[in-house]
């Protein structure tokens, strides 16, 4: 097999690094008009919320986590998991990246709403 030079490898990896960085920057700043947040526990949809209609911050208590719902944003306020990654993640404002609490199997994600008027606190 043809030998690959060290320099070629460095270029490839730096390129990959750059692409990933650009992807992250673009993804974090995408503005979405419709902000419907869904909270899943154990893979089941527990709450659907319309973040654009939130006027005052409020919290949702889950068995092991507390979710903070704000105007156009949502975040994990607290959790009883050992790593606290979900809490340290901060707020999300668009549907690119979810907030995941892996140990407690909680997922918060923002979706592009398909037109249904989202209801707060709906259990399904």
């Amino acid at each position: 097999m043809r030998k690959i030079s060290n320099r070629a490898l460095i270029i490839i990896f730096l390129g990959l690094l750059a692409v990933s960085a650009v992807w992250i920057l673009i993804a974090a700043n995408i503005e979405q008009d419709e902000l419907t947040a869904e909270i899943y526990v154990d893979g089941r949809l527990m709450y659907t919320l319309d973040l654009s209609k939130v006027t005052e911050e409020y919290t949702i208590e889950l068995p092991h986590n507390t979710v903070l719902v704000g105007e156009g944003e949502i975040s994990m306020l607290s959790a009883d998991c050992p790593d606290q990654l979900c809490v340290r993640q901060g707020v999300i404002r668009n549907g690119i990246q979810p907030i995941i609490c892996l140990p407690n199997r909680v997922e918060i994600r923002i979706v592009k709403d398909s037109g249904i008027d989202a209801v707060t606190g709906g259990r399904s």
Binding site: S20, A21, W23, I24, G43, Q97, P98, L102, R109
Partner: peptide, 11 residues
């Protein structure tokens, strides 16, 4: 997690 949204963490 039964969710494909995890792959957004890829970058």
């Amino acid at each position: 997690m039964d969710s494909l949204a995890l792959f957004w963490y890829l970058p």
